[in-house]
Amino acid sequence: MAIRVQRPIFDIGVELSDLTADNPRIGGLCCFTGLVRDMNNGDAVATLTLEHYPGMTHKQLAKIEAEANERWALEASLIIHRYGTMLPEEPIVLVAAASAHRHDAFAACQFMMDYLKTDAPFWKVEDTDQGARWVDSRDSDATAKARWRDRES
């Protein structure tokens, strides 16, 4: 289990190789990467800046990762989330789960991402050709999280 909250860019390939290294019990690795888009709500986005609540961020991400490890049989898991200013195409977040078979890895990866969207204290501000603006939260994120409450796996 690992959590990293960092400013620098990361290499997805390197991170995933490191995650599965020296563990031949892993038969499935699932990951989600969130990237900076160059358009949002019809306006061109030049840069995206993420602010976070340092004391709370690590705590919330660790809680999400621990719950995923309780619910599914994972061999390895990882959450990396960046803050600071990023350019289009750069990765913002990487969530990965590895298990013996695919089901646990798929489910745990989606679970961690759905919880991260509503529980991790990050805020995005985008610099667009219309000026800087804070990104609004989406109701669909709360719905995505809520559906896990009634599910065993």
Binding site: H52, Y53, G55, M56, K59, K117, T118, K124
Partner: peptide, 26 residues
């Protein structure tokens, strides 16, 4: 104290209280 709370929860002098909009990470 770095946990999501309700506006009706008790707070006292030594607490750390944070206010923010709904989160938009990921």
């Amino acid at each position: 104290n770095q946990e999501f709370a309700s506006f009706d929860d008790p707070i006292s002098d030594g607490d750390e209280v944070a206010f923010f909009p709904p989160v938009t990470g990921g």
